[in-house]
Simulated scan of single mutants.
Amino acid sequence: MKKSVSGKKEKIKDKNRLIALTKDSFDDIWAFDGTNFPEHVCGYRLGVYYEVNAVNRNVLIEYYLKGKLFITKEIVF
Rank of each mutant, 00 (worst) to 15 (best):
M1E: 03
M1G: 08
K2Q: 13
K3L: 07
K3M: 02
S4G: 00
S4M: 03
S4F: 10
S6P: 08
S6Q: 11
G7Y: 12
G7C: 09
K8A: 12
K8N: 08
K8H: 06
K9A: 05
E10I: 14
E10M: 09
I12L: 06
K13N: 11
K13E: 12
K13Q: 10
K13A: 13
D14Q: 05
K15D: 00
K15F: 05
R17S: 12
R17V: 11
L18I: 04
I19E: 03
I19T: 06
A20V: 14
A20K: 15
A20L: 14
A20I: 15
L21M: 05
L21C: 05
T22H: 04
T22F: 03
K23H: 02
K23T: 01
D24I: 13
D24L: 12
D24H: 15
S25F: 10
F26E: 00
F26S: 04
D27N: 13
D27K: 10
D28V: 14
I29V: 15
I29W: 06
W30K: 13
A31G: 11
A31Y: 15
A31M: 11
A31N: 14
F32Q: 07
D33E: 09
D33W: 11
G34A: 08
G34M: 03
P38E: 09
E39L: 07
E39W: 10
E39T: 08
H40Y: 10
V41A: 12
V41Y: 15
C42W: 13
C42H: 15
G43L: 07
G43R: 07
Y44V: 07
Y44I: 05
Y44C: 06
R45K: 13
R45A: 00
R45S: 02
L46S: 00
L46T: 13
L46C: 01
G47L: 04
G47M: 03
V48L: 02
V48H: 00
V48N: 01
V48K: 08
Y49T: 09
Y49W: 12
Y49G: 02
Y49E: 00
Y49F: 15
Y50E: 10
Y50W: 15
E51T: 03
E51M: 01
E51Y: 02
V52R: 03
V52P: 00
V52M: 01
N53A: 09
N53G: 09
A54I: 14
V55Y: 04
V55H: 06
N56F: 10
N56R: 10
R57C: 11
R57P: 05
R57A: 11
N58F: 15
N58E: 14
N58L: 07
N58W: 12
V59R: 01
V59Q: 02
V59T: 15
V59M: 00
L60P: 02
I61L: 05
I61K: 11
I61Q: 04
I61F: 01
E62A: 02
E62Y: 03
E62N: 03
Y63T: 08
Y63R: 08
Y63V: 10
Y63K: 10
Y64S: 08
Y64I: 07
Y64L: 07
L65F: 14
L65E: 06
L65G: 02
K66W: 04
G67V: 07
L69P: 09
L69Y: 10
F70H: 13
I71C: 04
T72W: 04
T72Q: 06
K73S: 05
E74T: 15
E74H: 04
I75E: 10
I75R: 11
I75S: 00
V76D: 02
V76Y: 14
V76S: 04
F77A: 05
